[in-house]
């Protein structure tokens, strides 16, 4: 170790130090001492248990030949192991569903993840703070539009007789029904999602940027850094821990795209690219002759992929950036 002159940082605790073990008596005392806090947190724990953990019990039907109305446990329950999963892997829809879901999510991620970071950095670097606040409020607005209204707006803009087509037609062009064009689905879906959420997602980064020491900016000004260089060398490193956490969480939910918007935008013309795992699960589980066991197996498979991605992202981040969720 390097020789430390004068004052040195406090030495770390020895690696082999033993943590005092809690006896049951000590544990009860600890609970008693903290009971007001436990009482306060109890409702939240109860809600999470009832609505997030208890329903996990329902995934058991993914391993059964289950029909709606059957009890999950009975003497007639037919356990079929990974039968539903095998059925999905051999389903003709498997690869198109995987491809559609993955492409939509990955393209959306590459555009949608950096966008709020860039916006927050730009808003933070603006000289006119009042204007920055006005812009931030404007950017947050679309987040509060419901998906149905959003898709309605897309129809008004990109429908056969929508604004875009009207402009194209007035300029002598040919009308195109973008909702029937498979190639238009992903750009419309991704760009409208990002338009709706970039301002809202930027809030967390703007909050992180507000804690940056102004002295660092002043030091950088005296060092000769331009405004852009200050963003790169002061602001961006300051929000990197937050970026890492958000990156891990985004990767963890990468395949977790919802079915609602895709279903609302779905037409026969774009079905080849708009059929996702989520919409397929919805259709299998709730429409026609419901096959809930099969739908649950597909949903569980999707969740397992998300968990694996989350673990990989967290481990990678921990290794390279010292930031992680656990």
């Amino acid at each position: 170790m390097a020789k430390v002159k004068g004052n040195s940082p406090a030495p770390a605790a020895p690696a082999n130090s033993v943590k005092p073990q809690k006896t049951p008596k000590k544990w009860l005392k600890h609970l008693w001492e903290n009971y007001p806090f436990l009482v306060m947190v109890f409702p939240a724990v109860l809600v999470v248990f009832l609505f997030n953990y208890l329903p996990i019990y329902g995934v058991l039907i993914a391993f059964q030949d289950f029909m709606p109305g059957d009890p999950i446990f009975s003497e007639y329950t037919q356990w079929i192991g990974f039968g539903n999963f095998t059925r999905f892997f051999t389903d003709v829809q498997f690869w198109p569903l995987m491809k559609n879901t993955f492409l939509l999510c990955i393209i959306g991620f590459f555009i949608g993840f950096p966008l709020p970071i860039i916006v927050s950095l730009m808003l933070n670097a603006m000289k006119g703070k009042r204007m920055a606040k006005v812009l931030q409020t404007i950017f947050n607005g679309p987040h509060f539009i419901s998906l149905v209204v959003l898709v309605g707006m897309l129809t008004l803009f990109f429908g056969r007789y929508g604004l875009v087509n009207n402009i194209v037609a007035s300029l002598g062009g040919e009308r195109v029904s973008y909702f029937l064009e498979a190639s238009a689905f992903r750009p419309m879906y991704i760009l409208s999602s990002n338009w709706q959420d970039f301002g809202w997602s930027a809030i967390i980064y703007i909050a992180a940027l507000s804690s940056v020491d102004p002295g660092q900016h002043e030091a950088a000004i005296l060092d000769g850094a331009t405004r852009f260089q200050r963003v790169i060398h002061v602001d961006l490193p300051a929000i990197m821990p937050m970026v890492s956490v958000m990156l891990i969480m985004s990767i963890g939910g990468l395949m977790g795209v919802g079915y609602e918007k895709a279903l609302l935008m779905q037409t026969d013309g774009n079905l080849a690219v708009s059929e996702l795992i989520a919409t397929y699960v919805y259709k299998q589980g709730l429409t026609g002759i419901p096959d809930q066991a099969y739908a649950t197996a597909i949903g569980l498979f999707n969740s397992i992929i998300n968990v694996i991605l989350l673990i990989i992202a967290n481990t990678t981040s921990k290794k390279f950036s010292e930031n992680s969720l656990w």
Binding site: G215, A219, H233
Partner: peptide, 10 residues
């Protein structure tokens, strides 16, 4: 300039 709170780049 030397700042009161050091203002080093962390």
């Amino acid at each position: 300039m030397v700042f009161q709170n050091y203002a080093l780049y962390p």
